[in-house]
Nucleic acid binder design. Structure first.
Lengths: 168, 168
DNA sequence: TGAATCTGCGACCAATGCGATCTGATTTCT
DNA sequence: AGAAATCAGATCGCATTGGTCGCAGATTCA
């Protein structure tokens, strides 16, 4: 539940790879190169790169030494954008999409708190760029403060309950 | 993508309904009653309530006027617990479940930043209880500060980039 | 006390969406 | 010009989810 699609996952990995390589040379990378280095099934990756090309994240180049190239600065590509491009609009609860009110009395009151969570998640994903991922590669997780800051949530001056930090 | 399952969605709605009704009378509510009032297909709801009973959120009572009753204080039931009970462990990226390292060089470096997001989401879901949802029913969304505070993220002293606040 | 009825319980079936594969169009190098 | 290598689109099979049906247990009323 609440999982990222493999597609989205692969896309992020691939884009990160592009960002890393692009620092060294401005050449295009073929789908095969990326697939080999990232351990992604080539056919699937092709489809993803294709879509990323259409949606403006990558520039495709035909020909023998063709391939793909990042279209923008990795700083300007947020995880959210990528996920949206690949998987379509991000939706938490199903009601959000449907225009009609779910009807009865107190039925849909749950939506509001959920929507908050939803928005928080979006804000979270939005605040992380490919560039961030690149920098964040090999540091230890729990110890240090986040490099580009992972978020600060709208409102919410109070502190959250202690709440078992068991994060599984 | 990143959507809550209908099952989980329904479960939250149902639990909230239980919490609301329980304030007035301590009686059990039949599956039918909940289904009618919440607009959830009865057979599906039955299955959900059944599972919620097994996992200790509800107490089931047989007999002519039987039904279900909340097993604990709605304050003590977090959205995360419910989602986990219904949909299984919450997982963001697929790699998190697999024990084996995905292998190559820089391949899995994306995981770390994603894991942060993942944990943030979990913390978020954990901090919201059924009780919160109840209180949060009819207020206006954007205007006021959050009642039980929806989160404050670990670390992250800096502010996030301005970033288009378009949240769809 | 017995039977009817209402309840929860478990297993089964259908469908949307995801993942993977195959074939075709376009460009560059020889 | 030919051939190799690349991107591009369409198609197929599978898995998880959503939804339904029939059965067993408990209670209550006659």
């Amino acid at each position: 539940m609440l999982r990222l699609t493999k597609k989205a996952d692969y896309s992020l990995i691939a884009l990160k790879h592009f960002a890393a390589r692009q620092r060294e040379s401005g050449d295009s990378l073929s789908a095969k190169e990326v697939a080999d280095n990232c351990g992604i099934p080539l056919p699937l990756l092709s489809k993803l790169l294709q879509k990323l090309g259409k949606t403006g994240f990558l520039i495709s180049e035909y020909g023998t030494n063709g391939g793909y190239r990042l279209a923008r600065d990795p700083k300007l590509i947020s995880a959210l954008e990528v996920i949206r491009a690949i998987d379509g609009p991000v939706v938490l609860a199903n009601c959000f999409t449907e225009t009609l009110h779910c009807g009865h009395s107190d039925r849909c009151t749950v939506r509001r708190p959920l929507k908050r969570i939803h928005e928080a998640i979006l804000r979270l994903l939005e605040s992380v760029s490919i560039e961030d991922m690149l920098q964040d590669s090999d540091e230890d997780l729990s110890s240090k403060t986040l490099p580009h800051s992972l978020v600060a949530l709208q409102g919410s001056p109070k502190h959250l309950a202690p709440s078992a930090t068991a994060v599984k």
